[in-house]
């Protein structure tokens, strides 16, 4: 598996680069290095949320159990990345704003994402019957998507926020992001996404084997 070693070395190089190059935001200083980890985590939390919605739609159309598995896996990984993004965000907030939590629009939207992930798994725990559980959680996943998207992408732009704008274009204008910073951030986004796909694939295979074993019994 050569690609695994490529990922291993590339991520290692990226980690070294993220610490030895000049800090991405000179005014904030050394702590701004957390950008290279915080942004990919937040990005993957959103990607996982969208993945789960897409698999939920496909489940309702095709009614295949493996599609429900994938929706659940995407939500589980999304929960992990959302927690990581929340924690790194709170750490950075403590250093730069002086408090861990102040209900900044960005913090509100990641908190809501966490609540949706939590609610999704509460629902799965409370419904009996494989098909009924799959259908109910798929419907909830799809239904929770539009208000959450509004909260993540529209609301932060309507309300004044202390959060450094997180799209790369905005950042470019605000921070005058150098090509070094941009390439490390881009590399980090790519490698974290590869990592996410790897984890997703492994979990999907485990679920598939478990299902096959249950059907054998």
């Amino acid at each position: 598996m050569i690609w695994q070693w490529v990922l291993f070395v590339a991520m290692g190089v990226l980690i070294v680069m993220s610490f030895i190059t000049p800090a991405p935001q000179q005014q904030i200083g050394e702590s701004s290095r957390i950008f290279y980890y915080h942004i990919p985590q937040a990005w993957l939390a959103v990607v996982a949320f969208a993945t789960s919605m897409i698999y939920s739609i496909r489940y309702l159309k095709r009614r295949e159990a493996s599609l429900d598995d994938r929706a659940a896996i995407a939500n589980a990984l999304g929960l992990v990345f959302a927690i990581l993004a929340t924690v790194t965000g709170a750490m950075f907030a403590k250093v730069t704003w002086g408090t861990y939590w102040n209900w900044d629009p960005r913090q509100t939207s990641i908190f809501v994402l966490l609540l949706i992930y939590g609610a999704y798994f509460s629902l799965r725990g409370a419904v009996t019957g494989d098909e009924r559980r799959a259908a109910m959680s798929a419907v909830y996943s799809i239904f929770a998507f539009p208000p959450a998207v509004f909260l993540m992408f529209v609301f932060p732009r309507l309300t004044p926020s202390l959060h450094p704008s997180d799209t790369i274009v905005d950042k470019n204008m605000k921070f005058a992001m150098t090509t070094d910073v941009a390439s490390i951030l881009f590399g980090s986004l790519v490698l974290f996404t590869v990592l996410y796909i790897w984890m997703f694939n492994l979990a999907a295979r485990v679920y598939k084997m478990e299902r096959a074993r249950r059907e054998d019994d």
């Binding site: 598996m1 990922l7 070294v16 610490f19 290095r33 492994l202």
Partner: peptide, 21 residues
Amino acid sequence: GNYVALAVTLVVWLGLFLFLR
């Protein structure tokens, strides 16, 4: 401090990678 953080991050990455592999 940066070198300490760098070392810790690399160890975390090594652990995660070996686990996934």
